[in-house]
C-alpha cells in the first residue's frame, strides 16, 4: 500500500481536508471520505457518467480522476445544487418534466447539465442533445431529460 496523502479542496463551498491513498478516486473520496453519497458510481470506467461532478466548473467523470489530483480544486456535487431549501432550476425542471424514474443517473445528469449550461446558457436543442449523450439513463429514454434541461435553461435565462 502506498502512503496516504492529505488533500485539501473545496466541496460545495466548504473547505475540506481528507487523507487518502493516491489510488482513491475522486468519486470514492466524495462518497467515503466526505460522506457525500449523492454522487453515484455506475460503471467506474468512464462510460456511464453517473459520477459526473464539476471540478473548477468543468464537468468531469469523477471515477477517472484521483482525489489527489483535486488538491486545491473547487468541486461541486449534486448536494450543492439546491440553495436554502429551494431546488435548483434544473432539479425543479427534472421534477416537473419527469426527467427521472429510478433516479440513479440523475445526479450525474444534473451536474452534466449544470456544466453544459454554464458553458453555454443559450445552447440550442441539437447541441444539447449531443452534449447530453455523454451520460446513460436506462429508464427515461432521454426525451424527458432533454425536455427538463431545455426548460431549466429557459428558466435560468429569465
Amino acid at each position: 500500500m502506498s502512503e496516504k496523502q492529505d488533500v485539501t479542496f473545496t466541496v460545495n463551498g466548504d473547505k475540506r481536508t481528507i487523507r487518502v491513498e493516491p489510488r482513491r478516486s475522486l468519486a470514492d473520496a466524495l462518497r467515503e471520505d466526505c460522506g457525500l453519497t449523492g454522487t453515484h458510481l455506475g460503471c467506474e470506467h468512464g462510460v456511464c457518467g453517473a459520477c459526473t461532478v464539476l471540478v473548477d466548473d468543468q464537468p468531469v467523470r469523477s471515477c477517472l480522476m484521483f482525489a489527489v489530483q483535486a488538491d486545491g480544486a473547487r468541486v461541486r456535487t449534486v448536494e450543492g445544487l439546491a440553495a436554502g431549501g429551494k431546488l435548483h432550476p434544473l432539479q425543479q425542471a427534472f421534477w416537473d418534466h419527469h426527467g427521472l424514474q429510478c433516479g440513479f443517473c440523475t445526479p450525474g445528469f444534473l451536474m452534466l447539465a449544470a456544466g453544459i449550461l454554464e458553458r453555454d446558457p443559450n445552447i440550442a436543442e441539437p447541441e444539447l442533445r449531443e452534449a447530453l449523450s455523454a451520460n446513460l439513463c436506462r429508464c427515461t429514454g432521454y426525451q424527458n431529460i432533454l425536455k427538463s434541461v431545455l426548460a431549466a435553461a429557459f428558466e435560468m435565462r429569465r
Binding site: G49, Q58, V60, L64, A131
Partner: peptide, 11 residues
C-alpha cells in the same frame, strides 16, 4: 466534436 463526450474532452 467527434472525440468522446464533453466531460471526456474537458480532461
Amino acid at each position: 466534436r467527434h472525440i468522446g463526450h464533453l466531460p471526456i474532452r474537458c480532461r
